[in-house]
């Protein structure tokens, strides 16, 4: 359902993505792993076009956009593609001047022009889903990180995107708070939400993702079923990386 065809992305002279080709099926959950600076965030942001790829093509469902160096893409086309996606950020990025429920309603009322009542109803049911209904009228600054991230997930889901993009959704959180976010995301995975998530959190990746992609220095080194990639990777680089992650997880565990 999502197709990335030979995506290249340059920032000035720096080539961050070097021809990434991937497909993700409807209902699949894909973990994007790899060393810091490997291009995970940039790749996610190329899917919802927060970054415009230098070249290549992005397809979501029936919508497909091609990119060529130096060629501007029409804003309307960018928006049409982007509106089929939702994104969850590492540092939540809730709107601080709106309450939890207003954050969730925003995309419905402002973008989709839903009437207030209907938007509030849907927002409330999403907040229930992420276990935040009791904080519907709270200001974001009064919520814990885990709570903010759960509201952010509800906000991203509100306009019914075809894919949920998560950029290290748990890495700004303490382990206990991370767990409540992992729980919410695994519920969504079970219900068949299509997700692509960049993560360092092997616990998150291995409990939720069925597919995994190892991205290093802007290149897909290895991809396949998550179980296989995490427990029995083929490439030497993947092996080394998974070993460091496993090590981190063990030392995290001791720190609790």
């Amino acid at each position: 359902m999502i197709g990335l065809e030979n995506i290249e992305k340059q920032f000035g002279d720096l080539t961050v993505l070097k021809g990434v080709t991937l497909t993700m099926e409807e209902g699949s959950v894909t973990a994007l792993v790899g060393p810091s600076g490997g291009g995970k965030s940039t790749l996610l942001r190329c899917i919802n076009l927060l970054e415009i790829p230098t070249s290549g093509a992005v397809r979501i469902g029936e919508d497909r956009l091609e990119f060529r160096p130096g060629q501007r893409v029409p804003t309307a086309a960018v928006q049409r593609l982007r509106r089929q996606t939702g994104m969850v950020f590492q540092n939540f990025q809730l709107f601080p001047h709106r309450t939890a429920i207003e954050n969730v309603m925003e995309g419905l009322t402002t973008v989709l022009k839903w009437p207030e009542n209907r938007a509030r109803e849907r927002a409330m049911s999403l907040l229930e889903k992420v276990g935040m209904a009791h904080k519907a009228d709270a200001w974001p600054a009064t919520l814990s990180g885990g709570q903010q991230q759960r509201v952010a997930i509800a906000r991203a889901l509100a306009p019914s995107p075809r894919v949920l993009l998560c950029d290290e959704p748990t890495s700004a959180l303490d382990p206990e708070l991370a767990q409540e976010v992992v729980d919410v995301l695994s519920d969504l995975a079970r219900e068949g939400t299509t997700m692509v998530m960049a993560t360092h959190d092997l616990r998150l990746a291995s409990t939720i993702a069925r597919e995994a992609v190892f991205l290093d220095a802007g290149v897909v080194v290895e991809k396949g079923p998550a179980q296989k990639l995490f427990s029995d990777p083929e490439h030497e680089r993947t092996k080394r990386f998974i070993a460091t992650l496993t090590h981190e997880m063990v030392s995290d565990g001791e720190a609790i």
Binding site: N48, L50, T75, Q79, R82, R83, T85, G86, M87, F89, Q93, L94, F95, E106, G107, T110, V111, L112, R155, A156, A158, P159
Partner: peptide, 9 residues
């Protein structure tokens, strides 16, 4: 980015 990500112009 958060605003754009929920589809705002």
């Amino acid at each position: 980015e958060a605003a754009y990500s929920i589809g705002m112009s």
